Computed example of a mutant assay.
Amino acid sequence: MSIFRSFVLLGFFLLVSNQSYAQAISKDYQKNCAREQVAEHQGIKGKALTEEDFTAYCGCQANFISKTASNRQVNELVMNPKAKPEWLKVIELKAMKACFTDPKMTT
Rank of each mutant, 00 (worst) to 15 (best):
V38G: 03
F64N: 05
E36F: 00
K67E: 12
K67I: 02
D53Y: 08
S70K: 07
K45F: 14
Q61C: 06
E40Q: 14
F64K: 10
C58A: 07
N63E: 15
E36P: 09
A34T: 00
L49P: 06
F54M: 07
K47S: 02
A39T: 10
H41Y: 12
C60W: 00
G46H: 00
A34V: 02
A62L: 03
I44N: 13
I44Y: 11
F64R: 07
K45G: 12
A39L: 02
C60G: 00
R35L: 12
Y57N: 02
D53N: 11
K45H: 13
Q61P: 11
G59R: 11
E40H: 11
D53P: 00
A56Y: 05
S66I: 11
T68A: 08
A69G: 06
C33W: 04
A39C: 02
E40M: 12
A56P: 11
Q61I: 12
N63K: 13
K67N: 14
E36V: 07
T55N: 12
L49F: 04
F64T: 11
Q37M: 14
Q42I: 10
E36C: 02
N63M: 08
T68L: 01
A56S: 11
S70T: 13
C60F: 00
T68C: 05
C58Y: 01
A48D: 13
S70P: 02
G59F: 03
K67R: 12
G43Y: 03
S66V: 03
G46P: 04
Q42Y: 12
I44P: 07
C60V: 04
F54P: 10
C33S: 06
Q42F: 13
G46C: 07
A69K: 09
Q42N: 13
F54L: 00
E52F: 06
A39V: 02
Y57W: 05
A48Y: 05
S66E: 10
N63G: 14
L49T: 03
Y57H: 09
E51V: 08
D53S: 08
F64C: 10
A56I: 08
K47W: 09
C33A: 00
A62C: 10
A69S: 02
F54Q: 07
F64I: 11
R35M: 12
E40W: 03
I65G: 10
T55E: 13
R35V: 13
E40A: 15
T50W: 02
F54G: 04
V38F: 06
S70R: 03
A69C: 01
K45W: 11
Q42S: 14
A34S: 12
C58L: 00
A39Y: 05
T50Y: 04
K47F: 00
F64G: 01
G43W: 03
Y57K: 01
I44M: 15
T55V: 11
K45M: 13
Q42D: 15
S70F: 01
A39E: 13
G46R: 09
K47C: 10
A69H: 00
V38E: 10
A62D: 05
F64L: 08
Q42A: 15
N63T: 15
S66T: 10
T68P: 08
L49E: 06
Y57C: 09
C58V: 08
G43F: 06
A69P: 01
Q61E: 14
A62S: 14
R35Y: 04
A69Q: 07
K45Y: 13
Q61W: 03
V38L: 03
Q42H: 15
I65D: 10
Q37I: 10
G43P: 06
